[in-house]
C-alpha cells in the first residue's frame, strides 16, 4: 500500500509537470536530434542571425504602456543596432522568459501535495531559494554540448556564439553547459524530473524558514517516491538516486555564481534594468 501511494504521488507530479511546463525533455530531445515532424529550429550563431532570429522569439508580449516605458528605461532598440545594444536587448528577452518560467514553477510548486498548507512565508522562502535551481535543472534537457534550445524550442543558440559575447554575458551560460552535459548523462526522463524538481523545492535548509518540520516531512515522502521511481524506471543504473541527489550541491554553487553575474551586470551595464520579479528573488539571496 505504501508503494502504491508513492506511485500515485509520482503520477500526480508528472501530470502537473506536463500541465505547467510547455517544453518537455522528450520534445526537446526530439527537436535536438531532428526526430520531430516540426520544422528545425532557427540557428543563432552570430550577431546577424541573432537579429534575424528575433522574429522567431515567442516571448510574452509586453503591454504597449510598459513597452514605451521600457524603451526609455531599458534601451529597447530596433534592428541594425550595435552588438552591445543587441546583447542588452537579448538579455532583456531572457529576463522576460525567466519571469514567465518563475510563474510556471510557482504553479508546479502549488500542485505539490501539502505545499499550499505550509506557512505562507515559508512558501515564499522555498520559491525564492528554489526557483533558480529548478530553472537550471529545466535548462539541462534543452542543452547539448554544442548549444541550447530557447524560445520554447523554436531557436537553437550555439555555445560558441554565447562564448563570443562580451563579459560578463559570455561567462553566464558556460557553467550551465558544463553542468548540463554531465547531468544529461544520468538520462532522467520527464517523470523522473518532476519528482526531482519537487525535492529541490521542498528543501528544509533554506535560510529563514519558520517551520522546517512539515517541509522535511513532505520532502521525505517525495524522496521515497523518487527513489522508487528511479529503481523502477532505470533498473540497470546503479546508484542513480545517490547520483541525482549529489547534483543538488552543484546547483547551489551555480545559483550563487549566477546571482553574482547578475549583480555585476547591474553595476556595469547602465542600460540593464532588472525585471521586478527577478529582483525580488535575487535580493539578499546569497
Amino acid at each position: 500500500p505504501e508503494s502504491a501511494d508513492l506511485r500515485a504521488l509520482a503520477k500526480h507530479l508528472y501530470e502537473s509537470y506536463l500541465k505547467y511546463f510547455p517544453l518537455t525533455k522528450a520534445k526537446a530531445r526530439a527537436i535536438l536530434s531532428g526526430k520531430t515532424s516540426d520544422s528545425s529550429p532557427f540557428v543563432i550563431h552570430d550577431m546577424r542571425s541573432l537579429s534575424e532570429g528575433e522574429q522567431f522569439i515567442n516571448c510574452r508580449q509586453i503591454p504597449p504602456s510598459l513597452a514605451n516605458q521600457q524603451q526609455s528605461d531599458c534601451g529597447l532598440l530596433h534592428p541594425g543596432d550595435s552588438a552591445e545594444e543587441v546583447e542588452v536587448r537579448f538579455f532583456q528577452r531572457c529576463q522576460s522568459r525567466s519571469a514567465e518560467a518563475v510563474r510556471e514553477v510557482t504553479e508546479f510548486a502549488k500542485s505539490i501535495p501539502g505545499f499550499m498548507e505550509l506557512d505562507l512565508n515559508d512558501q515564499v522562502t522555498l520559491l525564492k531559494y528554489g526557483v533558480i535551481e529548478v530553472l537550471i535543472i529545466m535548462m539541462a534537457p534543452l542543452m547539448n554540448k554544442d548549444g541550447t534550445l530557447i524560445a520554447y524550442g523554436q531557436i537553437f543558440m550555439t555555445r560558441e556564439f554565447l562564448k563570443s559575447l562580451r563579459k560578463p554575458f559570455c561567462q553566464m551560460m558556460e557553467p550551465k553547459f558544463e553542468f548540463s552535459v554531465k547531468f544529461n548523462m544520468l538520462e532522467m526522463d520527464d517523470s523522473d524530473m518532476a519528482l526531482f524538481l519537487a525535492v529541490i523545492i521542498l528543501s528544509g535548509d533554506r535560510p529563514g524558514l519558520l517551520n522546517v518540520k512539515p517541509i522535511e516531512d513532505l520532502q521525505e515522502t517525495v524522496l521515497h517516491s523518487l527513489e522508487l521511481q528511479l529503481k523502477m524506471n532505470h533498473p540497470d543504473s546503479l546508484q542513480l538516486f545517490a547520483k541525482v541527489l549529489q547534483k543538488m550541491t552543484d546547483l547551489r554553487q551555480l545559483v550563487s555564481d549566477h546571482v553574482h553575474f547578475i549583480q555585476l551586470l547591474k553595476k556595469t551595464e547602465v542600460d540593464i534594468c532588472l525585471h521586478p520579479l527577478l529582483q525580488e528573488i535575487i535580493r539578499d539571496l546569497y
Binding site: 510598459l66 510563474r103 502549488k110 525564492k128 520579479l277
Partner: peptide, 21 residues
C-alpha cells in the same frame, strides 16, 4: 518576508497574476 516579495506572494495566491508588470 511577504512585504519584500509582493509578486511572488501574489503568484502564490493567484495563478492569473501577470509577471510582466
Amino acid at each position: 518576508l511577504k512585504e519584500k516579495h509582493k509578486i511572488l506572494h501574489r503568484l502564490l495566491q493567484n495563478s492569473t497574476t501577470p509577471v510582466d508588470l
